[in-house]
Design a binder for these strands. Structure first.
Lengths: 106, 106
DNA sequence: GCCACTACTAAACAATGCAAGGTACTGAAA
DNA sequence: TTTCAGTACCTTGCATTGTTTAGTAGTGGC
């Protein structure tokens, strides 16, 4: 998996998954690993940063299978930011595909 | 335009455009600026790097409108690399869209 | 000669993913 | 009881790569 492709997009994926339901870090790592290869050391800094920026609130919940989980909940500000990012992402990959296809089949 | 999205993809775009025809740097900057916002100082380092890696050969051609242009020509190695990158790109954005849509319309 | 445009280069800077390391709780196997 | 695997969290330093900013140099019009 091309590491460079992921830049900035992982943040978008974390936001998107958390919009569907509150998530905890470990869960996000494993969910995202199914399709995109992603490391723990990548996810936690993103969560910290986005929480600091007010896009997430957090709360702890006990688990029967290990230490308590820190859940992340998307704020209203987070939802707006996510919507913007999704729009930008769509514009972006459409542009890239135009450049590629322009070339692949002229 | 999200700066981080561009990382890694610019290389792909430069390769894709050069696969269609030999290009010179200034031309690439202006073509790519049409869709992605991009600076001169970004393109030339990519060209230098890819040339060093054997994906491009270069030659000079005179221009009636300024100094001679340095054209970049994709090598066979470059074509193979491009094909790989395009395949990876398609897999990548498909995965990202799955994650986003999973969330946007469940 | 001077200026705008074209073409390219160089160096310091910033953002972000990753590897590697650490802490700590639970339950089952030894 | 000790040990190990699985769960869950977090931090640090590194590598990669685009950006910013500045600079060099040729051409043609004023």
């Amino acid at each position: 998996m091309n590491v460079q492709f992921k830049k900035g997009v992982l943040e978008l994926c974390v936001l998107a998954l958390t919009a569907k339901a509150d998530r905890y870090g470990y869960e996000l790592v494993h969910r995202l690993s199914e399709t995109l290869e992603i490391a723990e050391g990548t996810v936690y800094p993103i969560l910290r940063r986005l929480t600091k920026e007010g896009l997430f609130t957090t709360y702890l919940a006990e688990s029967s299978e290990g230490p308590p989980r820190k859940y992340y909940h998307l704020t209203t500000k987070g939802e707006q930011y996510l919507a913007d990012q999704v729009r930008e992402w769509r514009e972006f990959y459409t542009s890239v595909n135009q450049v590629i296809e322009e070339d692949a089949s002229p």
